[in-house]
Design a binder for these strands. Structure first.
Lengths: 219, 219
DNA sequence: ATACAAAATGACCAACAAGTCACATCATAT
DNA sequence: ATATGATGTGACTTGTTGGTCATTTTGTAT
């Protein structure tokens, strides 16, 4: 947890610090992300950072927590029950995700990047447990659909969960590719990562969903 | 390219060096992989490494080349034409992949790890182009299946290629998870990464293929 | 035994990192 | 104006890295 000092900072400074580190941690492994480099760019003393945070990990976890909470505000209100089928619910998650990306590109990128930090020794175990948790949630969702007779039930739950999880993560990358976006450039300019029109972005999602639907739905 | 000196080394030493660095580069990002640490474990002078290789990147690329060539020997002889349908061909690729993993666990792990090195600034561009190439190959394969009337043709090629690529990469991780393997432990002991019985490993692949088949085949 | 080239060595360098801490500065209350 | 506690600072420590190079060791041909 960040120290009290950090929370007492005026919003402007807190924001600047957060943004700068989100950027740094979105471009390097945990180990390679350089506090020294960021404070230099921010033009504040390195000591200050250690008035705000316990250590590098504390800082990192704050960014994660913060980004996740922001994203939560976009998707929290969505309920499976309000949709007649799973895929329209799933689609809506991405619609909100695109909105989140538009309004918080740095946080969006950071959260995406986190998924590929398995090889950072310092957070390997943590990353593993996060993934475990995400997979469990997927399993529960799928289980429910099976029970209600929407999804096939001839395959192991874990297999379907892993499949869906993998594809869900890769969706962002696919959209980048389709729209030939230079994510890095957009990040620097603080533009949304995904530059396509709303409808062309949704088209990408729909294509993916068609594939997923064919896999998961009962024949 | 490694220097001549390296190739003149006796097989034993060459092997020891290769193995040690495969291990190191399978556990860290390119930047974090430490030559200093490896030579210490190998009990050779750091200077020697620079008699063998131009620099860190040269060493890394050698490992990649070497690992890929070894893997190629396992899958090169497979031809789509020899199989009545795409998925039995695809399955056979994994059968051979498992064999490769059994006999060359370090190389297998290294090649897998490479797929997640997008965030290493020093090799980012390279990694991108490798991925581009892999995607192109996927596209070609899928295109052919579409032309021959086996795959659906109502979706963009790129979407299908990306989908298949993503799932193909994740297959290894799925097998790990199903068999509750501690990959790191097995690597250290130089055991195959995948510890399930041949048939239970194949079962995992088959489950995945069932999902893929439903997605890709014509309804 | 001598000569010569090839290979191995490890102290050394410059650059960089995370984290510390004695001190300076600032804001507020009196 | 003064005192006090909270913030801010950046030189410093300790440790790491990739890479170099003058020197020594080794292998081989004569």
């Amino acid at each position: 947890m960040p120290r009290q000092t950090f929370f007492k900072l005026k919003e402007e400074k807190k924001e600047a610090i957060t943004q700068a580190f989100l950027f740094e941690f979105s471009h390097h492994s945990f180990e390679d992300a350089s506090i020294t480099a960021v404070v230099k760019k921010l033009r504040i003393a390195k000591g200050s950072i250690y008035q705000y945070f316990e250590d590098k990990l504390d800082l990192f976890l704050y960014l994660k927590e913060e980004s996740e909470q922001t994203k939560m505000q976009y998707i929290m209100h969505l309920n499976r029950e309000d949709y007649s089928d799973f895929w329209s619910y799933y689609r809506e998650l991405y619609v909100q995700g695109i909105k989140f990306d538009k309004e918080h590109p740095l946080k969006s990128r950071f959260l995406y990047h986190i998924n590929f930090l398995i090889s950072s020794p310092a957070i390997k175990e943590l990353a593993k447990s996060w993934k475990e948790k995400a997979l469990m949630m997927m399993q529960q969702m799928i289980q429910k659909e099976i029970e209600e007779g929407h999804f096939r039930k001839d395959l192991p739950l874990l297999s379907m969960a892993h499949f869906l999880y993998t594809i869900s993560i890769s969706m962002g990358e696919y959209m980048e590719r389709v729209h030939r976006v230079d994510v890095s450039e957009n990040l620097k300019a603080e533009l949304p990562l995904l530059q396509g029109t709303q409808e062309s972005l949704l088209k990408s999602i729909d294509d993916y969903i068609i594939l997923l639907k064919s896999s998961f739905n009962k024949p």
